[in-house]
Amino acid sequence: MGSSGLYGMLIFVILAVFIAGLMIGRTPEYLGKKIEMQEMKMIALALLVPPFLILGGTGLSVVLDVGVASLGNPGAHGLSEVLYAFTSAANNNGSAFAGLSANNVFYNLMLALAMFAGRFAVIGAVLAVAGYLAAKQRVPVNVGTMPTHGVLFGVLLIGVVLIMGALTYIPSLALGPIAEHMQLFSVQSAE
């Protein structure tokens, strides 16, 4: 969800372990270390920064005249262009659709800010989690420890990733790409 590669998946693994621990009524453990409040605060920060940058930047860009002036396409496609530009910037890529004239002061600054914060805020939070876990003593595996190497945990992890993604992005996708597809479908049906 906004993170890159291995450390992004580790964020979701720790979140899934935390959720599983809460469901069984035990203190969550991962790799022999207890997952506690300070780790979960950093996990929450790492999970919330990219959507804040993407959705906040997109919202600000479609409200301000300077942001709308750079759109080559009005309506749902224009929203899709801005949403894609901020998604790409906050997730360390930095590309944009051809219809968005992103080479102006407003978009250069907004996308650069999204790229910088999307990269370093998430990395800082992940490094803080690593530091917290490294400082803890290992606890022995017991009956209440959920194994993280089985199919059950894999299904839980996939569910956590899908639910987090759906709750975060479905509303904006409904206003942009999905609405655009429905408009195109209705035009083709009318012909």
Rank of each mutant, 00 (worst) to 15 (best):
V122L: 12
S101Q: 13
G57C: 11
V17W: 01
N142I: 09
G8T: 14
A89C: 04
S80C: 05
S80E: 15
P28H: 01
L31R: 03
L152A: 15
Y30K: 03
T148F: 01
G8S: 12
S3Q: 13
A20L: 00
G159E: 09
V143C: 00
G176V: 01
G67Y: 05
M40L: 07
A16R: 04
P50C: 06
M182P: 02
A166D: 07
A85D: 07
G8L: 05
K136F: 09
V126D: 01
P74H: 00
V161K: 00
R26L: 00
M23C: 08
S189A: 14
L156D: 02
A85E: 02
I24D: 06
L184S: 10
N104Q: 04
L113F: 15
Y30H: 13
A96D: 07
I14Q: 04
V139Q: 07
L15R: 05
L152N: 12
H77A: 08
G150C: 09
D65G: 15
L127W: 05
L79H: 03
P147L: 02
F18P: 01
P28Y: 00
G59N: 13
L79R: 03
S61W: 06
A46D: 06
K136L: 11
G56A: 14
N73K: 05
L53P: 12
G2P: 09
I14D: 06
V66L: 11
G144Q: 05
G56N: 10
T148N: 04
Q188D: 12
M110C: 12
V187F: 04
I11D: 14
G78E: 02
F52D: 08
Y169P: 09
A130T: 15
G78P: 07
V151P: 04
A121G: 09
A85G: 13
G8F: 05
A102W: 11
V187L: 07
A114Y: 08
S186M: 12
G25P: 07
M115S: 15
G67N: 01
A121M: 15
N93L: 12
S189D: 08
Y107D: 08
P50S: 03
H149E: 12
V139H: 10
E180K: 03
M37E: 10
V187A: 07
I163Y: 04
I54T: 13
T27H: 02
N103P: 02
